[in-house]
Design a protein around this nucleic acid. Structure first.
Length: 210
DNA sequence: AGCCAGGCCAAGC
DNA sequence: GCTTGGCATGGC
């Protein structure tokens, strides 16, 4: 099955996901970035709790995050797990990016920040800054492998990103939507222990376990 | 009651 | 370059 067809099927089945979810009244770029850091290897439900804590304490702003005590920040984001390192990552990010004009914020700059890897950087760029970088995650690798599009689930980030970007239009709205749809499929059907019987890609998947 | 989640870093080969 | 271990909470 071709990549573009996969996108169409998922969109047809799930409908528009309208990612990235952010609260009204906060800086979108900031909230996406903090969410992207907090969701590293973590359930989004837990991230929501952490973000609610930040909003409740009125610290989801560049100035407040820069000045907040590190230990206090750890407490607030605790529900998201790995809170010791994520608090430092957030501090690193804010220090490196605060006050910069957006055109100065490049992928290389983000990757130079300790705690920002490829997926986090691309999530920030795509959903926070509307730049055309396709976000690859564990679901993406798993789904494409099971579909038979890639030969291994351990394909490198760069390789899979390149394959996908070469096979869909360079359109940030498609990039945003496709990744969100892959997450939806990965969460609900193409899980580690998959639910192939009800999967919307069931009849065109090589790894179909029925 | 385990298993798992929208990764990243450091260390070792 | 690729692999491994550590990091932590809460939902199911």
């Amino acid at each position: 099955m071709q990549i573009k067809e996969t996108y169409k099927k998922l969109l047809d089945h799930f409908g528009f996901q309208k990612w990235w979810p952010v609260h009204t009244g906060t800086d979108r770029f900031l909230e996406v970035s903090i969410g992207a850091i907090l969701t590293q290897n973590t359930n989004w439900k837990n991230v929501e709790k952490a973000i609610e804590n930040l909003i409740k304490d009125d610290v989801l702003s560049w100035d407040k995050l820069e000045s907040i005590d590190l230990e206090k920040l750890k407490e607030l984001i605790k529900p998201a797990g790995f809170y010791n390192q994520k608090a430092v990552y957030i501090k690193n990010f804010v220090k490196a990016v605060k006050g910069l004009p957006k055109e100065r914020i490049t992928r290389d700059l983000l990757l130079s920040i300790k705690g920002i890897g490829e997926e986090t950087a691309d999530s920030i760029l795509l959903y926070g800054l509307d730049r055309p970088y396709f976000v690859v995650d564990a679901y993406t690798k798993r789904i494409f492998y099971r579909l038979g599009i890639t030969k291994t689930e351990n394909i490198s980030y760069k390789k899979l990103q390149k394959i996908i970007q070469q096979n869909i239009p360079k359109d940030i709205n498609i990039y945003k939507e496709f990744h969100a749809l892959l997450v939806e499929l990965g969460k609900n059907y193409c899980r580690k222990r998959p639910l192939c019987i009800k999967c919307p890609l069931n009849n065109s998947c090589k790894k179909n376990l029925k």
